[in-house]
Amino acid sequence: MKIEQIRNATLRIQYAGKHFLVDPFLGDKGSYPPFPNSARQDQNNPLSELPVSKEQLVEGIDALIITHLHMDHYDEAAKEFLPKHLPLFSQNEEDAQVLRNDGFTNVNVLGEDTSYEGISLIKTQGEHGRGEILKMAGLVCGVVFKHEDEKTLYVAGDTVWYAGVQQEIDAHQPEVIVLNAGDNQFLEGGSLVMGKEDVLQTHQAAPQATLIASHMEAVNHWTLSREELKAFAAEQGFSDKLHVPQDGEAFEF
Rank of each mutant, 00 (worst) to 15 (best):
V165M: 10
N101R: 13
G190Q: 11
T152M: 07
Q91T: 11
E168V: 11
D183T: 05
K18V: 01
A213F: 05
P207E: 09
K230I: 08
I169C: 02
S38V: 05
S31P: 02
V98Y: 15
Q201D: 13
E197G: 04
A96L: 06
E112V: 12
A250D: 05
F186I: 04
N37F: 11
R130H: 12
L64F: 05
G189W: 11
E76C: 02
Y116P: 12
Q166W: 05
Q204E: 15
E197A: 11
G182W: 02
S38D: 03
P36T: 06
Q173E: 14
I119W: 00
T202M: 11
V219F: 13
D240R: 11
M216G: 06
E217W: 07
Q14D: 15
L11P: 09
I3R: 01
V199S: 04
H147T: 11
V109P: 06
Y154L: 11
F89S: 02
L110N: 00
L153G: 00
R226Y: 08
K151W: 07
G103S: 14
N92R: 06
A77L: 03
V143E: 00
D42E: 14
A233H: 05
I61A: 05
D247F: 11
E235D: 13
L200N: 03
S120D: 15
S225R: 09
D28C: 06
A39E: 08
E93R: 08
L64N: 01
G248S: 06
P33K: 06
Q167A: 14
K123G: 01
T223F: 06
A16R: 01
P24Q: 04
P46M: 02
A206I: 02
E93I: 04
T152N: 07
T152S: 11
H128G: 00
H172P: 00
H128F: 15
E80A: 14
S38Y: 04
Y154V: 01
Q173L: 12
I177A: 02
N108T: 10
A231W: 01
A137S: 15
M194A: 11
Q14G: 12
E148Y: 14
Y162Q: 14
V178R: 01
E94I: 09
P207T: 06
Q41C: 05
K84Q: 08
H215M: 03
G189N: 10
A156T: 15
T202A: 15
A234L: 12
A171H: 04
A209G: 10
Y116D: 12
D75G: 03
D28Y: 10
K84V: 09
E252G: 10
H73L: 14
N106Y: 07
S48Q: 15
S214I: 03
G118D: 10
I133T: 12
G237V: 09
T124W: 03
K230E: 13
